[in-house]
C-alpha cells in the first residue's frame, strides 16, 4: 500500500512516502547558516537535536517564502539522519493504491521534474511524488 504524506509548496501539491516521515512540527525559530547553500534554510532545535532545514521552495526553484509566513517542518529520516523539509502547509496522508501513477508531465518545470518520482493524477489535481534522496542531494559549489 502506497501512502504519501502530502503538503503544499507554492502552487503545487507534493507528497513523500509516509515511512520516511519522522514527524511534522511547527517551529518558530530557525538559525540561518551563513555560507551554506541557498537551499539550506538553517538549523532547528528539535527536542535538543540540531537538524538542518531545507527550504523546499528554494530547492524547487521558487522564491523563498516571505519571512512572515509560518512554514512547517516535515522531518524526514534518510540514511539515519533526520532532515527537516520546510513546506508551506500540510495537507494530510493519502492512500494511493487506486490512483493512476504516471511519469512526471512535461508541463512541470525542469528544475522540479528532476526531483520527482512521478505524479499521481487525483480527480481534481496532480500530486507530485518527491524523490527525497534526490531532494536532499544538495551540491554546493562554494564548499571546497
Amino acid at each position: 500500500m502506497t501512502q504519501l504524506s502530502t503538503f503544499h509548496v507554492g502552487a503545487y501539491l507534493f507528497g513523500v512516502e509516509v515511512s520516511l516521515v519522522q514527524e511534522i512540527v511547527r517551529l518558530p525559530s530557525i538559525t540561518p547558516v551563513p555560507l551554506a547553500p541557498p537551499e539550506i534554510a538553517g538549523l532547528i532545535n528539535l527536542r535538543g537535536e540540531v537538524l538542518t532545514a531545507v527550504d523546499l521552495r528554494v530547492r524547487l526553484g521558487m522564491h523563498p517564502a516571505p519571512s512572515t509566513q509560518d512554514q512547517v517542518n516535515v522531518v524526514v529520516r534518510l540514511d539515519d539522519e533526520p532532515v527537516s523539509l520546510l513546506v508551506d502547509e500540510i495537507d494530510g496522508v493519502m492512500a494511493l493504491d487506486r490512483v493512476p501513477f504516471e511519469s512526471t508531465p512535461s508541463t512541470v518545470p525542469e528544475r522540479v521534474r528532476e526531483l520527482l518520482v512521478g505524479a499521481y493524477t487525483l480527480p481534481d489535481r496532480l500530486l507530485l511524488a518527491l524523490d527525497v534522496r534526490e531532494v536532499l542531494r544538495i551540491e554546493d559549489a562554494r564548499v571546497a
Binding site: 555560507l35 551554506a36 539550506i40 537538524l51 538542518t52 531545507v54 532532515v83 536532499l136 564548499v143
Partner: peptide, 13 residues
C-alpha cells in the same frame, strides 16, 4: 553537536 551532512563541508563551523 555535529552538523548535518549538508553543512559538514563548511569549515568555519
Amino acid at each position: 553537536k555535529p552538523l548535518g551532512r549538508h553543512l559538514k563541508g563548511i569549515q568555519v563551523y
